[in-house]
Each structure stands twice: as structure tokens, then as C-alpha cells.
Amino acid sequence: MKQVLSFEKPIIELKEKIHELKNMAEENNLTLDDEINTMEQRLKRLEQEIYDHLSIWDRIQVARHPERPTSLDYIEKLFTNFIELHGDRLYRDDPAIITGIAKYKEVPVTVVAQQRGKNTKENLHRNFASPHPEGYRKAIRQMKLAEKFNRPIICFIDTKGAHPGKGAEERGQGEAIARNLMEMAHLTVPIIAVVIGEGGSGGALGIGLADHVHMLENAMYSVISPEGAASILWKDATKAEEAAKSLKITAKDLKALGIIDEIIPEVKGGAHRDFDMQVAYVDTYIEKSFNYLTTIDRQSLPNIRWEKYKKIGEITE
């Protein structure tokens, strides 16, 4: 059963009508080519119209679509020889974050990614991609190995946020994220991060301090969920759409604010509609960053990273 997003309904209805018309023509031996042609043209225009004017709320629905490609889907297509490596060596393995080594364009790399499930069972296993401290600690362990062996790091961000739980607090959720930020600051290998779905606040940033941060066209990246913001601001979670607008969480907004580097285009209607084409888009942007960042002198990377983040934040004096 495919999930239909509300903005897709007119398209799907029209498609059904065309389908019916074709059936009718066939069954009754009628020539309805002109009518069918007209309707197909109308469908094209409608698709163009709808997909070119997605509201923020439509985009959020696309970003949260259950069939949206996950990190593992991208890992499988973009890399060869991927070996997943588990555990933080301190407490346990956190399935919400996947880490491993692989080759990208024949070059060894380290991959760090937040992993959603595609169904309830997977999501329970992955904790809906909400990492615990041990997930962040596993990530930084792998990133330090990446530095040791001079491997560029590629991160995929896709989480609603770090897990809000008792054990997570007891084991230092804040400290785990903070330490990652501090350690990532001085890694002398390139770090590329791609926000593929939801970028949920500090939980996303915990693997997202990078030389280049790219974002899929319909992805979101926010300091707080629109629902959370609405309930704080107006004590009303149903005003999430309004909050989403104010928070400036789309790829376009964040590019304008200088927070992300590039917007990776999505196939019409969302990444889930043609995954192979989507992988090709993502590949293009990663490759471009990869080729550029690997030419930079390793020792100067931390300083360049500092200059990049130092600039973020509008103030007056």
C-alpha cells in the first residue's frame, strides 16, 4: 500500500481517470486518442504546477515519507566494498547510527550515517534513527580512525533528533554530541555531510560539523521540530506549518542563510519516486566536494572549518 501525500491527490486522481478512459476505449473499441492526449497534457501541466510549488508543509511530508530512501540505500549505490563496523567500545552498538569503511570512486572513505527503518519492526530496531550517546561515540571513534588512515569522511544526516531518554541522559547525551563537535573541529581529513531527510537539531549536528554540508531539495534541517516550536510558541502543535515557515528550515532558506553549501535537486515529487536518478544527483554533488576538498592541504582543514563556522550568525555592534 503506497502512501499518498495530500498534495499528490489531484495527480493521482487524474492518472486514475486517464487509466479509466484508456480501459473504456479498449473495452468498447472506441477511439478516444484525442481525449486521452488532452488529459495527458493536462497531467503534465498539473505535475509541473504542483511539484514546482510545493509548500513547506508538502516538503516536510516528502522528507518524512516512509518510502523515502534511507542512508543504507545511498550507501549501497554510492560505495563499493562497504564494511559496516559496530560499537563504541564503551557500552554497546547503537543501530540508529551506521558506520563503516568503503570505497568511493576507488578511494577509501569512512561512512557515518543515521539510519531510519522502513517499517515498524526496522524502526524499533533503529530507534527511529534517534541516536543514543553510544551512537555518537561510535561515530567519533570511526572518524578518528578515518583521520589516522587519511580517509575522507562522508556523513548522511537523517534523524528527528537525539533520543530523549533516561539512559541517554545518564550516559551523557549532551557530552557525547559536544565532544563530537570538538573532535570533528580538528580532524585533518575532509568531512562532507548530506542531509537526506530530516535534520533534527543537535542530534543531526552531532555528526554534521563538516567542510561541505549539502541538503536534498525537500529535506529539512531545524533547531526544533515545527510541532515542538508551535507548542512552545502558541501552545498548539497544529500550528506546525506556521512555525515551519518562521523557522526557515528548507534547503533554499538555509542556503540563503549561508548554513548549507549546496542544494541537491530531487526528482519531481521526491527522492522516493525515482531512486536511481536521485542517487545520480547525490553522487554528482558528493563527487564535486570530494574532488575539491581532497586537493586541500590536510593540515589547513581545521582552520578552514573554523573560518566557515565563525562566519555564521548575524549580529550588529
Binding site: I177, A178, L181, M182, A185, V223, L247, I312
Partner: peptide, 14 residues
């Protein structure tokens, strides 16, 4: 201040 605020976590940690 939206994502600008989030990025201050990165800035201060660096």
C-alpha cells in the same frame, strides 16, 4: 534564530 542558533553549537565547540 532558527538554524543560526544551532550553528552556534558548532562555533563555540570549535
Amino acid at each position: 534564530e532558527g538554524m543560526i542558533s544551532l550553528m552556534q553549537m558548532a562555533k563555540t565547540s570549535i
